[in-house]
Amino acid sequence: MLGKAVQAAEVIQGFLNVSKFLDEAQKKRAEEIIVACVKESHFKVEEELFGKGKSLPASDCEKPPTVKKKLAPDWARHLGKLKHAVAFECIQQGLAKEFPNNFTIEPRYRREEFTNDLMLTDRWAGSKQPDLVLHFTRNATRIQCIYELKFPCGKEQGDPWGDERVRFQMEEYRALGGECEPVIVTPQLEISRQ
């Protein structure tokens, strides 16, 4: 009899875990993991390339990277790609331990032409690809929150919302829907809401 009660409790708990958004405490914990990973990736990449406590001078951000394997034509984008890769790996490990079914890294979304329903796609034309999405358990098209990672080059710490291209990008993500407004995550300012 006790075994059946335990089984029933496990089924109910499993159902509750399968069908929900993260609550406020869980969302806060997820954001702590995201911020920690963004900071860690920023410092790890900078230290590996430039030495402990050093970073690229802002005057070099638009110059071509002086490395064998160039990921972009300038340092700013090269560093951004490296830092994103390290942050994504860290976020994957951190969130998978606590919320394995409530996040997706770099999902690509588009609206279905006739129904306007949000769907995942591999088609680039007309689609949008945020860096990280918290979503309903096992359903990436029921968006809870969108996080865009930004890694300013050099010691720059300006307002990430100050760039017109970034504001346009975030407006596109807002149009995808969600329970909360899209946010920007930087190593310096952490979570930045408009």
Rank of each mutant, 00 (worst) to 15 (best):
K150I: 13
I105R: 05
C145E: 11
R77L: 08
L95A: 00
S55D: 13
F99D: 11
L79G: 03
S55T: 12
A96F: 12
I184A: 00
P130M: 00
N116I: 06
S127D: 04
P100G: 09
L49V: 05
Q169V: 07
G14Q: 14
Q13V: 06
L134G: 05
D131K: 08
V185M: 02
D117Q: 15
E156Q: 13
A85I: 03
Q93N: 14
V185H: 10
G94Q: 00
G177W: 08
G177F: 03
R123G: 06
F15L: 15
A87S: 04
C180R: 12
K155F: 10
N101I: 01
P64N: 09
A36S: 11
P57V: 00
K54N: 11
G158L: 06
K63W: 06
T141D: 09
K20D: 09
H84C: 03
F21Q: 06
E171G: 12
C90Y: 03
Q92E: 14
R174V: 08
N17K: 05
R142V: 07
Q13P: 02
E48P: 01
M170I: 06
G126M: 12
F21W: 01
A72G: 03
S59Y: 10
K81H: 05
R123Q: 15
L134F: 15
I143F: 02
Y147M: 04
A9W: 11
I34G: 05
L16M: 11
G51S: 10
E46I: 03
S19C: 01
Q169S: 07
